[in-house]
Simulated assay, not measured.
Amino acid sequence: MQRHEAGGSPANATAIDLRLRLLAGFLLAAHLVAVGWLTLAPLDLPWTSAGNMTPLAGIRADLALGPVEAARRIGEGLALLAPLGVLVPLVSGRLRLSRLAAWSSLMRTAAAGALVSLSIEMLQSGVPGRVVDVDSVLLNTLGVLIAHAAVVPALRARLARSLPVYQGDTPRISRVGIGPWTDVLSAVPREY
């Protein structure tokens, strides 16, 4: 079924899609620069604690500080890279996906978030005043997953409804009159 709308040419649909992808790419780059500045700036501290390489140990320590402080620290870990969960799929630009492709998009986005978080943690090992924490990678990746699952399906549906669907030009077939073989098909067979 074709949906015909005003301005539904492929050039118009491509321009809208291209502008959206460029905006998402710019926002993604700006977010990564801000995250890099926040997480890789050296800190002038008299002492630092040891790095945490035991999964969930830092989260348990945060929970031991009380509910308000734990919510703040865990929330910061979840929110740091959460915009990647929305921006990475928008940069890819695919709006109409099957269930398998949507699941694949979720996994690719989570992998991208985990790699960015792991890269930050690796770079922090050489920055004065910063310590490596494996729980940061877990929380950042979980934040990317939550943001993707909460926002991207509804955003894709809304964008898919607002953009015209271009399915190619309607084929034009010239009208053909009665062919020369029609008297052969309609003739009564003769007896010999």
Score class of each variant (00 low, 15 high):
residue 56 L to A: 10
residue 44 D to E: 14
residue 18 L to I: 05
residue 44 D to T: 12
residue 53 M to V: 02
residue 56 L to R: 06
residue 15 A to G: 08
residue 28 L to Q: 06
residue 61 A to Q: 06
residue 39 T to L: 12
residue 11 A to E: 12
residue 26 F to C: 15
residue 35 V to Y: 14
residue 26 F to K: 03
residue 16 I to Y: 00
residue 7 G to P: 05
residue 42 P to F: 01
residue 19 R to K: 04
residue 24 A to L: 06
residue 54 T to D: 09
residue 58 G to Y: 00
residue 13 A to C: 05
residue 41 A to N: 07
residue 42 P to R: 00
residue 7 G to I: 13
residue 52 N to W: 04
residue 30 A to N: 11
residue 15 A to E: 10
residue 62 D to R: 05
residue 29 A to H: 01
residue 48 T to Q: 13
residue 51 G to I: 07
residue 51 G to H: 01
residue 26 F to E: 08
residue 18 L to G: 14
residue 21 R to D: 06
residue 22 L to W: 15
residue 6 A to G: 09
residue 33 V to K: 09
residue 15 A to C: 05
residue 7 G to C: 04
residue 39 T to S: 12
residue 21 R to Q: 13
residue 29 A to G: 09
residue 11 A to Q: 07
residue 54 T to I: 11
residue 17 D to C: 01
residue 60 R to F: 12
residue 31 H to A: 12
residue 11 A to S: 07
residue 43 L to M: 14
residue 14 T to D: 11
residue 13 A to W: 03
residue 48 T to A: 10
residue 24 A to N: 09
residue 6 A to D: 14
residue 47 W to L: 03
residue 16 I to C: 00
residue 9 S to T: 13
residue 34 A to G: 14
residue 30 A to Y: 03
residue 22 L to Q: 14
residue 45 L to C: 07
residue 55 P to N: 14
residue 11 A to I: 12
residue 27 L to K: 01
residue 11 A to T: 15
residue 49 S to E: 12
residue 20 L to E: 01
residue 16 I to P: 00
residue 29 A to S: 12
residue 8 G to T: 13
residue 23 L to T: 15
residue 54 T to K: 04
residue 47 W to T: 10
residue 62 D to N: 00
residue 30 A to D: 11
residue 24 A to W: 03
residue 8 G to F: 08
residue 39 T to D: 05
residue 40 L to Y: 05
residue 50 A to L: 03
residue 7 G to D: 09
residue 16 I to G: 05
residue 60 R to K: 12
residue 56 L to T: 08
residue 8 G to K: 05
residue 47 W to S: 10
residue 50 A to Y: 01
residue 22 L to A: 12
residue 40 L to P: 04
residue 29 A to W: 05
residue 18 L to D: 06
residue 35 V to F: 10
residue 27 L to M: 14
residue 43 L to C: 13
residue 36 G to A: 13
residue 28 L to T: 12
residue 10 P to N: 09
residue 24 A to M: 08
residue 41 A to H: 08
residue 42 P to S: 03
residue 41 A to P: 00
residue 13 A to Q: 05
residue 32 L to F: 04
residue 41 A to Q: 10
residue 47 W to I: 02
residue 11 A to D: 08
residue 32 L to D: 01
residue 12 N to W: 15
residue 40 L to S: 11
residue 30 A to H: 09
residue 43 L to R: 09
residue 62 D to A: 15
residue 55 P to D: 10
residue 46 P to K: 11
residue 9 S to W: 12
residue 40 L to Q: 10
residue 57 A to I: 02
residue 43 L to I: 00
residue 26 F to I: 14
residue 17 D to S: 15
residue 21 R to M: 14
residue 14 T to H: 08
residue 10 P to C: 02
residue 51 G to C: 09
residue 10 P to V: 11
residue 58 G to A: 03
residue 12 N to F: 07
residue 6 A to M: 11
residue 52 N to C: 02
residue 9 S to H: 15
residue 59 I to H: 03
residue 36 G to K: 01
residue 23 L to A: 13
residue 10 P to G: 09
residue 35 V to N: 11
residue 34 A to W: 15
residue 29 A to T: 12
residue 26 F to S: 11
residue 47 W to A: 15
residue 50 A to G: 09
residue 59 I to Y: 01
residue 58 G to W: 04
residue 46 P to W: 08
residue 38 L to D: 05
residue 53 M to D: 01
residue 35 V to Q: 01
residue 54 T to S: 10
residue 14 T to G: 04
